[in-house]
Design a binder for these strands. Structure first.
Length: 128
DNA sequence: CTTCTGACA
DNA sequence: TGTCAGAA
C-alpha cells in the first residue's frame, strides 16, 4: 500500500544517479509530486523519464526533449507533439548528415596524404 | 540511513 | 553531471 517510489528507486530503475534526476527536474523535464520535501514519482513521471532517456539516445538536447514533453501534456490529440517531433528528428538528421559529410571529406584527404607519405617513404628507402 | 538544497580546489 | 556539506 506504500508503493510510492522515491528518487533512489527511480534512479536505479533507469541507471542514472539521483543527481541526474534532480538535474532534469531543474531543467523542467520532470515535475514529481511532493510529500513534504520528499519527491514522489508516479507512473507518469516514469513514462516521462523513459522518453527523456530515449531522446538522449537520439542525441536530442534537453531543451528539445523538454519542449516535446510539454507538448505531450498540453496536446491530448498528440498531433502537435508528433508534428514537433518530426521537426526535431529532421534537424537532428540534418546535423548528422553534415557530420557524415565532413568525416568523409577528412577520410578522403587522409587517404591522399597517407598515400603521399608512403610513397615518399619508399623513395627514401630505395634511394638510401 | 536517505533525501534536500546549494555550491564549486 | 559529479561531489561534498549541513540540515531534516
Amino acid at each position: 500500500m506504500s508503493e510510492a517510489l522515491g528518487i533512489a528507486d527511480l534512479a536505479r530503475e533507469f541507471d542514472v544517479t539521483t543527481r541526474t534526476v534532480r538535474f532534469y527536474e531543474d531543467k523542467g523535464l520532470l515535475a514529481p509530486a511532493r510529500e513534504g520535501q520528499r519527491r514522489i514519482y508516479s507512473a507518469r513521471d516514469r513514462v516521462r523519464l523513459r522518453l527523456i532517456m530515449r531522446g538522449k539516445r537520439l542525441g536530442l538536447s534537453l531543451d528539445e526533449i523538454a519542449s516535446l514533453l510539454d507538448l505531450y501534456d498540453v496536446d491530448p490529440s498528440e498531433v502537435t507533439q508528433l508534428t514537433h517531433f518530426v521537426g526535431v528528428i529532421r534537424d537532428r538528421k540534418s546535423v548528422l548528415q553534415g557530420q557524415k559529410c565532413d568525416i568523409e571529406e577528412s577520410l578522403a584527404e587522409m587517404d591522399r596524404l597517407e598515400a603521399q607519405c608512403v610513397k615518399l617513404l619508399s623513395e627514401k628507402q630505395t634511394t638510401s
